[in-house]
Design a protein around this nucleic acid. Sequence first.
DNA 1: TTGAAAGCGCTAACAG
DNA 2: CTGTTAGCGCTTTCAA
Lengths: 327, 327
Amino acid sequence: MTVSRFLRVPHEVAPATAARIEAALAHTAYTPNKHAGMLASGRSNIVAAIVPNISNATFAQTVQGLSKTVQGSGLELLLASTNYSLAREEEQIRAVLGWSPSGLVVTGCRHTPAALALMVAAKASGTPVLEVWDSNPRDKRFIQIGFSHPAVGRMMARHFLQRGYRDMTYVDSGVIEDFRARERANAFVAEAAKAGARVQLITAPQSEPIAAGGDMLDEMLSSGLPRAAAFANDNLATGAYLRAVQRDISIPHQFAMLGFGDFPIASQLGDGLSTVSVAPYDIGVVCGHRLLALLNEAGARPGIRASETPAAPRPLPQPELIQRGSS
Amino acid sequence: MTVSRFLRVPHEVAPATAARIEAALAHTAYTPNKHAGMLASGRSNIVAAIVPNISNATFAQTVQGLSKTVQGSGLELLLASTNYSLAREEEQIRAVLGWSPSGLVVTGCRHTPAALALMVAAKASGTPVLEVWDSNPRDKRFIQIGFSHPAVGRMMARHFLQRGYRDMTYVDSGVIEDFRARERANAFVAEAAKAGARVQLITAPQSEPIAAGGDMLDEMLSSGLPRAAAFANDNLATGAYLRAVQRDISIPHQFAMLGFGDFPIASQLGDGLSTVSVAPYDIGVVCGHRLLALLNEAGARPGIRASETPAAPRPLPQPELIQRGSS
DNA sequence: TTGAAAGCGCTAACAG
DNA sequence: CTGTTAGCGCTTTCAA
């Protein structure tokens, strides 16, 4: 009992005892069994995060931001990926809730009914549930750290419209299950059409996006190059940009381009690729801060070191259109 | 007890009973407490993975490969990152072992003595310990899924030497704690020097690598452009490539380039960037397969679904120099 | 400041 | 095929 106490609240054991315990610990390679601790205390120090795909740079940054923010406070990250499948997401939520996590982070605001029920139950039992990468004003049951994808699609269309382009194409992502990409695409098309512009929606193949972007440029070329094209992400746009340069197409005079995501390469392509910045790392950081704040206020929890950085509630930077040489 | 049995080995309960249990389950939103299960059974179905940085595309792919391989078998992934610090790695290993993981995956073969002791203890207690992304023939205590970084550095130097370049620069990564990058750099320099070539080692700033690569190109330009340059990774090389194009430098006639990693963009830059492919995703997949194989042979473990794919022991593709237009 | 008792929710072993 | 008993390693509570 005294050892257990020493491990959790060291200043509550006498210095002499503490020294003896430390000595013993050094000889023993003792590792506290966290399952037993969790079972007894009901607290777990696990944060479960469920993302569509970890190798997607965007989500990887969010995970890294979350991980970095949260690990400083003794929380650990249980990570699962869904491959953009809602059914798989439900499975993962169910699996992950069995670890009684201190917090649950899911991607997006769309879930199967059963998944939603699990999330509601988790929330009801006091586990913070956060949705990242999207925002749905019509259902604010969970904490949302993201933005409106249709609004971004409209913003992108208006950028082209304001610059006088009346003939534009939207190159959507080949990941057919990525309905957030779809929301941007549809909103783009609707906004452009509403303004009377000529607008076309094409979809990239599911293959590697940089190469796919190049292929889409060729496809547009063969069916009549539009005056301007927006892309579901900067990788697609980069591929198209590089191919356009090879084909001696002048950007933006013949062909204007707009990406999404503000990947590091966007600023390095020729005179720069115009894009929308969305701060994926910050999504993770803000998510972590919100989580820590909630855990702290839910009572001083012995296991969790009250975050040294007093959870500065920095707000999430909203999507911003970054104009560069390509438009 | 019967419910517990139904959940683990459904065919051992009578169909009628099973039906009653299923009905009850549907009404109850019951989630088994995995901590209690673990505590009682001594098995955890957790795989702990510790990587330097998740938002690094390379490690993200490894994690995704591991995650995908392993999740099909009911294992879950506990992820921690070290920011390339060995001290932090030790901390994370210690923390993660408290969850009695079924397997422990660490990055690289260099660890603090205490971390090593923990890994040895874990192995001794029957937990498979795997080291990814490196290989150390002199210490094969753990399963290694990686390659020799010095060998890659030498391979890169020999590529330039074979093509007759006698004046070359190696642009090392700005991540000073990344000693695997350092091993490649040093081996490159040694090999080139041994052959009597003129060779220089410079280090990129710690900033975002694509932009940093561009800056390094300018730096080389101002101090006399070498005949050939190798880069610690394809992002640095990409930045330099794009900048070289802007500066009207002819690749490879004036300036030959060689990257590392075979990132998707490498094949899309002009006539292609020569690089070394290292299969980061496969490292994760192979790691997962080895792990599953070990867990299966360590006795039929009720929790773990014997992997549907019978853990086809595909070997790890070794690093390969991919020659493209830049050299 | 320390320690004894009880119990967290589950599974192993065994009895019925 | 089902259910009883004991106990996993820790924490909570409370007494000494």
